[in-house]
């Protein structure tokens, strides 16, 4: 049976469990982490069918440069004779995936929504050109590397939890000469909200807010959603760059994307068009985001979002 390696950089979050769920289509799932995990995390992995968890021993080489992590992961994949190496899709993991593919001389598929083997080679499907095309691609190499788009599938546990075998794996990793991480400042996040790239629901708002994001935050919190925005709002300083959805921001593909006061420029759409359900709120019925939406409300976002939050709270109170 083929082996699929899934990389996780910490405790298994939803995105990783989705990748594990997809990895089971490919073969026996081995999770690879930069450091040992706690017993609860190990049990979670077992519930999702991971048979083995290895943590990487690099002999003290820091696992912060993508080049070092990617090389270590490639070494692990070789030792484990993996047919597939899978990561969730974020900016950081795509960089790691690139280095892994380079070291393995393997084909690389980015942002796939499903996985399978095609004549023994890793294959997956992805959306292209602002969500207007569906493509199916396969690697032609013995090993393949893929990044999996979050929310493409629902993470599903296996019927019988697996007893995960854990252990260390000694791997080679090197940081390029002279490269140095000088500082890393974690933003005061609204840690109560899920990370944007992986959230199942994203409430995004643009220039139509005129800088007042209170109704946006109110609805997001009722829905348990992450908050996204457009570049224009980042330029205005209304929200940090982390919140920007689009070509030069975060790519999202949630179960529900709600865009309020967003026109739907191609740069923005490129980063959200794979979303499952798209809802728009705009005063302009002809805005491109309205035209591509499944459901749209023409009206002022401040009152529409506030009323929607209120109606959802009432619904929850009744049921």
């Amino acid at each position: 049976m083929a082996t699929a390696v899934v990389y996780l950089d910490g405790d298994p979050r939803e995105g990783v469990l989705e990748a594990v769920t997809l990895a089971r289509q490919v073969g026996d799932v081995v999770a690879v982490a930069p450091a040992p995990l706690g017993s609860e995390a190990v049990q979670t992995l077992g519930r999702y069918g991971v048979t083995r968890l290895v943590h990487l021993e690099t002999g003290g080489v820091a696992m912060d440069a993508p080049a070092a992590v990617g090389q270590a992961l490639a070494d692990a994949a070789t030792q484990l004779d993996a047919t597939a190496v899978l990561l969730t899709s974020t900016f950081g993991t795509k960089e790691i995936a690139a280095h892994t593919a380079h070291h393995l001389r393997a084909g690389l598929l980015v942002d796939v929504g499903d996985l399978r083997l095609h004549e023994g080679h890793l294959a997956g499907s992805k959306r292209a050109f602002g969500g207007t095309w569906d493509t199916s691609c396969a690697v032609t190499t013995d090993r393949g590397v893929a990044t999996v788009r979050p929310n493409a599938v629902q993470a599903e546990p296996v019927q019988t939890p697996v007893d995960v075998v854990t252990g260390a794996l000694t791997v080679t990793a090197q940081v390029p000469a002279g490269l140095e991480l000088v500082s890393r400042e974690v933003h005061d996040s609204d840690s109560a909200r899920p990370p944007l790239a992986e959230a199942a629901i994203v409430v995004a708002a643009g220039r139509g807010t005129f800088g007042d994001f209170d109704p946006v935050h109110e609805l997001a919190d009722v829905l348990g959603a992450a908050v996204g925005t457009t570049r224009d709002c980042v330029d205005e300083g209304w929200l940090p760059h982390d919140a920007q959805v689009g070509q030069t921001g975060v790519t999202v593909a949630p179960r529900l994307y709600l865009g309020a006061g967003i026109s739907g420029a191609p740069h923005h759409i490129g980063g959200m068009s794979a979303s499952q359900t798209i809802v728009a709120v705009n005063i302009d019925a002809e805005a491109p985001l309205v035209e591509m939406a499944d459901f749209a409300v023409v009206g002022d976002l401040a009152s529409v979002l506030t009323d929607a939050a209120e109606a959802i709270r009432e619904h929850r109170a009744q049921s």
């Binding site: 000469a177 490269l179 890393r184 400042e185 933003h187 996040s189 990370p195 790239a197 940090p240």
Partner: peptide, 13 residues
């Protein structure tokens, strides 16, 4: 650079 909720500063020759 801003990645996943953090600002990183990197230096290299």
């Amino acid at each position: 650079r801003d990645v996943a909720g953090a600002t990183e500063t990197w230096r290299a020759p």
